[in-house]
Design a protein around this nucleic acid. Structure first.
Lengths: 177, 177
DNA sequence: ACAATATATATCTAATTGATATATATCATA
DNA sequence: TATGATATATATCAATTAGATATATATTGT
């Protein structure tokens, strides 16, 4: 699965500009699939060349001109085919856990800062997801929100429970390197 | 933070070949930072050119020859500097949650399969992490294991609680597209 | 005897990231 | 009123990465 498939999925929700699709990646998709302009615009170009999407160029008076993309029937078929063919994997790249893994190489104050920054960021994510949960939306989308809430709450609880012991034990001579 | 930093980190644990480092990525680092040969060997080459690591070529009788890499003092400084400078972010790419988000476009049997496959994979990860937790290791590493256990258990519980309702509600006419 | 797996070195292509560029606005602040 | 920040839009680019593939030496399991 790649950014092209997610762009097709975005357009299955309604016509959109590249800029709109980026906003979907930054909001609705943000807790499970990130993408930037560097992959969105090339994906839209390729999908257009392949006949999976089409666009209508619209002039605006007080804003730059825009391209409004639409899914074609071929694009909808491609989306469904890609979704059916995708194995349900999850890939994580956590700089936070890398820092914990090598915690003994960080000064104590920085380690404490890192834990606090990560907690703060997760608490922000929780608020964002809690707000999303209040809204009315399809069951599959609701599921992704609840999943995000469950795993983020578990992360926060784990950190809150462990951080004091971690800060004490990391520098004990038994393990210091 | 990139694969070079993780290679430096791997070598801070002890001298290793490229093949050994790949095994670390597949095992100890696997739940928070994946990397393949396509980035490991080029990273080692660059670090060697920069004087951050050095290697000893060893002939073997019944195996191909190997390069055993070591961290240099400059490499150790670079590692510590990189760790201190890294903000504690987490990036997730979850094809599973993409499939849930667009669940209404999947046939019911495939949706049920996807949920089961993902559950099975997570239960495997739990066993692997539970085995790791039994071992003796530094507090920072122990923390990464417990964090992985907490978030994976939360994911499994969320899916077990929600899957039946999800399978029922996804195709109800209120939301069907 | 053969297939699978382990131990080793890599390379390569396509995709992605994150920064950057350009251009038109509105909004907030001093 | 001027300036900086932000929003709305289109993109591109260099460095990095993923995942497949290649080559070569073994051992292990069926």
């Amino acid at each position: 699965m790649d950014v092209k498939t997610l762009c097709l999925g975005a357009l299955s929700l309604g016509d959109a500009t590249g800029y709109d699709i980026k906003k979907l990646f930054d909001e609705a998709f943000s807790h499970f699939f990130a993408a930037g302009y560097g992959s969105i615009y090339p994906a839209l170009e390729k999908l257009t060349a392949e006949g999976k999407v089409s666009y209508d160029r619209q002039q605006q008076e007080k804003r730059p001109d825009k391209k409004v993309f639409s899914l074609t029937p071929a694009g909808r078929e491609e989306l469904i085919h890609d979704l059916e063919a995708t194995p349900p994997r999850e890939k994580v790249r956590s700089e936070f856990l890398v820092l914990m893994f090598f915690a003994h190489l960080l000064p104590p104050q920085r380690l404490a800062e890192v834990l606090q920054e990560f907690l703060d960021e997760n608490n922000k994510n929780l608020k964002m997801l809690e707000d999303l949960e209040k809204g009315d939306c399809p069951p599959g989308i609701k599921f992704t929100i609840r999943y995000g809430l469950a795993t983020t709450r578990a992360a926060v609880e784990c950190i809150e429970q462990s951080r004091d012991a971690l800060l004490r034990e990391v520098y004990s001579t038994q393990f210091a390197q």
